[in-house]
């Protein structure tokens, strides 16, 4: 049984078909990369999967629950595309608030907080308000804020934007480790080098899923050597 499944999932904003008849199947422990140009519907898809947006038609199931049922929120973590944190609160306070909302005990919170600050290498900013952090640092805190309760599924909308290369590499190492321990990750990115770390890739264009497969599959299909080229090949093919 897949952990996430969508059936003709669609979202229309007026005449804009943000997501169009999307059929996805994601297995437990998979790192699924949603790729595609600006406005192709990646964020809209993730929001529907989290139960934040109601599909115009079609449906999605998460842990066998309907996406709008609000029965699985305890087990998912969502990192929005924009840094969504309380700017006046410190890093520690933001983590505490969201941890408490997930019902963590103080000791669990302390343990997870330490682990996650290690992960993003930001211990020295623990008691600094978000407003006083650099853009990349905020993004890092936003990421761990969605991981504070160790969710079974992580929805990460462009988690590596503005993060320096060394840390990005570290992020992916961590994501892969999480995948091995059974955490499912749905991730969007515009960096093709990162996409190669995914176990599966879905390529979207104008609300449609145009191809899907492992990075190797995709390369084979297009007979290209980099995902960058593969991506361009697919978009060119569509236009032609």
């Amino acid at each position: 049984m897949p952990i996430i499944q969508t059936k003709n999932l669609s979202k229309h904003f007026g005449t804009v078909k943000a997501v169009n008849n999307l059929n996805l199947t994601i297995q437990e422990g998979e790192i699924y990369g949603l790729l595609g140009p600006n406005g192709c519907g990646k964020t809209t898809t993730i929001k529907m999967l989290c139960g934040l947006l109601k599909p115009t038609s079609g449906s999605a199931t998460v842990f066998e629950f309907d996406s709008m049922s609000r029965k699985f929120q305890q087990d998912i973590g969502y990192m929005p595309q924009e840094t969504a944190l309380y700017p006046d609160l410190t890093v520690h306070d933001n983590l505490t608030i969201f941890g408490k909302i997930f019902g963590l005990s103080n000791s669990e919170l302390a343990r997870n907080e330490k682990e996650l600050l290690d992960f993003i290498n930001l211990h020295e900013k623990r008691d600094v308000p978000i407003t006083d952090l650099s853009g990349g640092m905020r993004h890092r805190v936003s990421l761990i804020c969605s991981m504070i309760h160790k969710p079974k599924i992580l929805f990460l909308d462009e988690p590596t934007v503005g993060v320096d290369p060394e840390l990005r590499l570290n992020f992916w190492k961590n994501f892969n480790e999480l995948g091995k321990t059974g955490t499912t990750i749905i991730i969007t990115t515009h960096y093709m080098d990162e996409a190669s770390h995914c176990t599966k890739i879905g390529l979207m264009r104008s609300g449609d899923l145009i191809t899907e497969g492992t990075p190797a599959d995709i390369l084979a299909k297009t007979n290209t050597r980099s995902l960058e080229d593969a991506f361009l090949a697919f978009t060119a093919r569509e236009v032609a």
Partner: peptide, 11 residues
């Protein structure tokens, strides 16, 4: 800030 959206994705 998007914090409302983040809250709405929690239980």
């Amino acid at each position: 800030q998007g914090t409302l959206e983040r809250l709405m994705a929690t239980p």
